[in-house]
Computed example of a mutant assay.
Amino acid sequence: MITDMKFLDLAKWRYTAKKYNPNKKISEEQIQELKEIIRLSPSSINSQSWKFTFVSDENVKRELARVSYFNEQKINEASHLVVFSAIDDIELFEKQIAENLPEGSVNYYNQFVKIGSDAEIKSWLQHQVYLSLGFFLSACASMSIDSSPMEGLKNEEYDKILQLKGYKTLFAVAIGYRNPEDSNQPSTKPKSRLPLEQIIQAI
């Protein structure tokens, strides 16, 4: 377990795992903690246009793995798969915010978001789910849990398997513990990033 680590150290430690130890599972206590953490993710006007499905059932996990292209092996090996979905029913979303958000937030949506096309509104809703991804990956790292975010999925098949109603699968994250033989880990394969001077502008 990583303790008393600076965030920079966590950023250097985490990576996208390619191989997991299938015999090592995340404790139920830690899963419950991750669920509470992701519930607290930030979103524009606190819109919370998301659903997070934690999959531990091996049969369901295998079903999802089969429709995940090159991600099949890591999903089967991982302890859990977390599926990130965005609300895809605008009327349902508007009902949700009317019941849960203050008037000012609802007015912002009506004045600046609702004026767009259905496609533009749904794009805005999906962007909120992507905000939660970085939050979740960082939480995993802080708990010494490895993760693999992935968009290489047959999204409509995911929707069917998970029986999602009013929501649409965007991406998934496999979580668990790295296999010591994973050649992608930083101790074996140093991280490759663009130079700070090329991507950071200070004015």
Score class of each variant (00 low, 15 high):
T16S: 15
T16C: 15
A17L: 07
A17S: 14
K18Q: 15
K18D: 14
K19T: 10
K19I: 04
N21Q: 07
N21V: 09
N23R: 15
N23A: 13
N23G: 15
K24H: 12
K24Q: 14
I26A: 06
I26G: 04
I26V: 01
I26H: 04
S27T: 11
E28A: 05
E28L: 13
E28P: 04
E29G: 02
E29T: 05
Q30N: 13
Q30I: 02
Q30G: 01
I31S: 07
E33G: 00
E33R: 12
L34K: 06
L34R: 02
K35Q: 12
K35P: 05
E36T: 12
I37F: 01
I37S: 07
R39W: 13
S41Q: 02
S41C: 03
P42I: 07
P42H: 09
P42N: 13
S43V: 09
S44G: 13
I45A: 07
I45V: 14
I45R: 08
N46K: 12
S47P: 08
Q48S: 06
S49Y: 00
S49H: 05
W50N: 05
W50G: 08
K51H: 14
F52E: 06
F52T: 08
F52H: 08
F52A: 08
F54T: 03
V55K: 09
V55D: 03
V55I: 13
V55Q: 02
S56P: 07
D57K: 14
D57E: 06
D57Q: 10
E58S: 13
N59Y: 14
V60Q: 15
K61M: 05
R62N: 11
R62I: 12
R62H: 10
E63A: 01
E63R: 01
E63Q: 12
L64Q: 00
L64P: 03
L64N: 04
L64F: 11
A65D: 03
A65M: 02
R66I: 00
S68F: 08
S68Q: 11
F70Q: 14
F70M: 13
F70D: 14
F70H: 15
N71F: 00
N71W: 05
N71S: 13
E72P: 00
E72D: 12
Q73M: 09
K74W: 03
K74R: 00
I75A: 10
I75Q: 08
E77Y: 02
A78P: 02
A78W: 03
A78G: 01
